[in-house]
Nucleic acid binder design. Structure first.
Length: 261
DNA sequence: ATGGCCCGTAGAACGGGA
């Protein structure tokens, strides 16, 4: 059977809930990883999503961050063994939620932005990713079928950046960040998007300013990485730019991977 | 040539995003 797994940074689930509900109704994605919900758990729209046929597991905070895992009740098992933070990493920021869905371990992550190379937040970003990498090594040992999906805030290669010369050395595209991404791949993870032929200038984020979307000035910073075992069953991966065309869009587009399992 | 937005918390700007 075919199973779809998506990641989408919604940049406020309160504002984007109508978009998300429309998108779920038309795409019927089985598993959805959300980032930047910006909602405390009491305000999470669990009822509206249940009405739409999705169960939700989530961890959020006021104003910033917040992640969620949605599972389509008709097609996939409920989420079990939920982990709502990185173990062994003291962090008040709600950036990670993981669960087992059927035989699949799904990790939904909102990597820190890093603000500027050399800043305190940049240092935090690298430390956060290092802790994630350590934890994932153990997760992969336990769960051969694992997906790491989310907003990585890293464009891994030149072709993931509209103007790599201008972005060289900048946050989201600095060498230490790209190295951290490669360290994740070295765990045995595969960038599902690059398993397939893709259009030129494929991006997942465009600045709200400067008509960046219309001018195709974006970055590919949202990713679905798959364990080697799972990557063998990946039949497709695509960025859905349609939600970015709507009124009042998120600045990120969703990425959808299709698994034949 | 430069920089032009959006969201949440406010209850006016400002921090943060990327």
């Amino acid at each position: 059977m075919s199973l779809t797994l998506a990641t989408w940074n919604v940049n406020s689930l309160k504002v984007r809930l109508p978009h998300l509900l429309d998108w779920l109704a038309t795409h019927r994605v089985d598993i959805v990883c959300l980032q930047e919900t910006k909602l405390v758990d009491e305000n999470f729209p669990a009822a509206a999503l249940a009405e739409a046929g999705y169960a939700a597991r989530y961890t959020g905070q006021k104003t910033y961050n917040g992640v969620a895992l949605l599972t389509r009740n008709e097609t996939v098992a409920a989420a079990n063994d939920v982990v709502a933070a990185l173990p062994d990493f003291e962090d008040p920021q709600k950036r990670l939620i993981a669960a087992t869905i059927g035989g699949l371990r799904v990790v939904c992550a909102y990597f820190p932005n890093g603000q500027a190379v050399g800043s305190e937040k940049y240092d935090y970003k690298l430390r956060w990713i290092a802790a994630l990498t350590v934890w994932l090594r153990a997760e992969l040992a336990q769960h051969p079928q694992l997906a790491l999906a989310g907003d990585f805030n890293i464009a891994p290669e030149d072709r993931d950046v509209h103007d790599p010369k201008a972005w060289a050395g900048q946050v989201l595209f600095s060498e230490p960040e790209k190295q951290a991404f490669r360290d994740l791949l070295a765990l045995g993870l595969v960038d599902s998007f690059r398993l397939f032929e893709q259009p030129e200038r494929s991006y997942t984020w465009w600045d709200y300013r400067m008509q960046a979307f219309r001018r195709k000035m974006g970055l590919r910073i949202d990713h679905v990485l798959l364990s080697a075992t799972l990557a063998k069953h990946c039949a497709a991966c695509a960025i859905d730019v349609e939600p970015r065309r709507r009124e009042q869009p998120s600045d990120h587009a969703p990425v959808i991977a299709t698994l034949s399992i």
